[in-house]
Design a binder for these strands. Structure first.
Lengths: 341, 341
DNA sequence: TGTTAGCACTCTTAGCCATCGAGTGCTAAC
DNA sequence: GTTAGCACTCGATGGCTAAGAGTGCTAACA
């Protein structure tokens, strides 16, 4: 599916003008954009062929052309220029992110916030996850006489905690028992191997002391299971309301994003170093007018999660892709550092 | 500002029909709604007077009447019927909420979620806060050789935690020092009395061991300060996009809600057992077309925070107010229980 | 063979106008 | 105080026209 050099240039110009203005582009504008003068009639001939091949669309006969999804795809794959973020911007973002020390969730939430603000789109990130996630550490923090916080550290660096009320007092004996059970049945296990049924068996095996452990073990098993789920952190959803072309289904789109789960599956399925999903490539009907730019971040060399943005298909791919790449690199660095030891 | 009984009935009917349909209400409809037959001309006379007194508005001369903000206010204060939630609904909600055990944040987030789903509006809740909040307990949980989680329990029941990377190893000595400093300078203090400057002095007074404590103390002081801030937990924002009357400024409204801080101030300022804020009563321009229904929840008998909803001014006050009252009662119960000990 | 000027054609947009219908306010009678 | 009747207002609807943008096609040209 080769395109002549001139057709490529015309397509690139149409995509870029359309991204900038949102208005259908006519042959006259393109002809005037060429340095070597080419008449609008010639451009029209070329545009007709581009339409025939499916790269352009016409809202109606007397309107200009608009890139089709195939057109955007060709632009992204072959035509798009490569921009770089300015060093000062790099510096600014790096600082903002490095200040968000602490749990991976904090770093990622901050990354989403920065992306949303930089790009004017909705931004997202997923919490770290790999299928091999193991339980690295478990702690019990006394909060009150009958209340404790169970803390779970996963090998992915994710930290989950849950406050837990108990039926009995939190004595030293209870704590010791807890740590023993945790060491015997949880530490080092794959988080995905922890099942509610298995935990019930463990509790039952404690005999008369079972009732002391039940709430704690339930919490621990819930935390384990939670650490195997990738959560989606969203930010800047309201930015999407600024795009005319999303107006009709903004409501549907926002609801879809907030539902979380289908989006999360989509993100796991398309985890690549960098992926650009245009319109219907997003698979879900709710997103057929949107594009996503996603970059995976790595922890200690392993793909661990995704950061990215969601906007209209008419999104400034050339300028935003480098931003997302950059953020993902920084996030990879910060999260790898924190998991290192 | 007395209104005759008949005027009251007409106003109530107009408010209720308008809430149900969103269309301006004409005199004919109201006249047919009266059991004792009254001609539309009579209704027109009454409506003209209600307009003159400011309870009704006309979008344009040939349209019916619409309640003004003053009209809604009168309706809410004097005319509105009292509905109750069905016992089965009460049971369902009670169960959903009781399952969200753990930190107050989890309970409140769940409450917001339930409210959003029940009411079709955006729902909110604020984390517990009173000006007397003291630091009740501090814990240090080892996470890695150079990483620890600082946990802070406030007297309000709020639990804050932060993972903290240190410049040195987390030895027993460091932990002991941390607990000593925390006991001496943090425990029992008012959270609002902890200032960054004060913490710096404390760190400095440790002499050569200062560098061991710096990151931990910074984290602890940030957590203290965080526990004096009331956070707003929002849910169901996308519900607001379903209301035609909010369409024009939905974007502005959502951005305002997400900004958090001004909203939080507004909520603290109007913390009453139950308050209904209609249109411009919300003080902020962004909310002049919205209404809020807020109920404060109590922890151990003390006003602690707010749960409520945000919707268009055309909201079903009569049916939603009891729901919010009910949720606030349940939340009060759950949170009081968990703080009791 | 590729390029271009010219022209007829299509289709949207905006404005105008008449019509329709809902709802009002007023008057006069009860 | 209530009501019937009527003139009036004003938005919504739909048809019509003119303007404008942009196309596709044809025929001429290099």
């Amino acid at each position: 599916m080769e395109l002549s050099e001139r057709k490529q240039k015309i397509l690139a110009l149409i995509v870029e003008y359309f991204i900038a203005t949102g208005e259908p582009i006519g042959s006259k504008l393109i002809s005037s954009a060429f340095e070597t003068s080419i008449s609008s009639a010639t451009i029209r001939n070329e545009m007709a062929e581009l339409s025939e091949k499916g790269y352009l669309e016409q809202p109606h006969t007397s309107a200009g052309r608009v890139p089709s999804q195939k057109g955007y795809r060709y632009y992204v794959d072959h035509l798009m220029g490569r921009y770089e973020i300015s060093p000062s911007e790099q510096f600014r973002i790096g600082n903002l992110l490095k200040n968000a020390v602490g749990e991976p969730e904090r770093v990622l939430a901050q990354a989403s916030g920065i992306l949303a603000e930089m790009t004017g789109c909705a931004a997202l990130s997923t919490t770290p996850l790999d299928s091999q996630t193991r339980i690295k550490r478990v702690e019990l923090v006394p909060i009150g006489t009958r209340t404790a916080m169970v803390v779970l550290l996963a090998s992915s660096g994710v930290i989950k905690s849950r406050v837990c009320r108990m039926d009995s007092e939190l004595t030293l004996e209870v704590m010791e028992l807890f740590y023993n059970v945790a060491a015997a049945h949880f530490l080092g296990q794959r988080a995905s191997d922890i099942h509610t049924a298995g935990v019930q068996t463990i509790v039952a095996s404690l005999g008369e002391k079972a009732f002391l452990m039940t709430p704690l073990m339930v919490a621990l098993s819930e935390l384990s299971q939670a650490s195997t789920r990738s959560e989606v952190l969203l930010d800047g959803q309201s930015n999407l309301l600024n795009y005319r072309e999303l107006e009709n289904n903004a409501c549907e789109l926002l609801e879809f994003l907030n539902r979380g789960e289908p989006l999360s599956k989509l993100l796991i399925a398309s985890r690549d170093e960098l992926s650009v999903l245009i319109g219907r490539e997003n698979f879900f009907r709710e997103m057929e007018n949107s594009s996503m730019i996603l970059a995976s971040y790595r922890i200690a060399g392993q793909d661990a999660g995704t950061v990215g943005i969601i906007g209209p298909t008419r999104i400034d791919y050339a300028r935003l892709i480098p931003s997302i790449r950059f953020i993902s690199r920084i996030v990879s660095g910060i999260l790898s550092d924190s998991v290192e030891e």
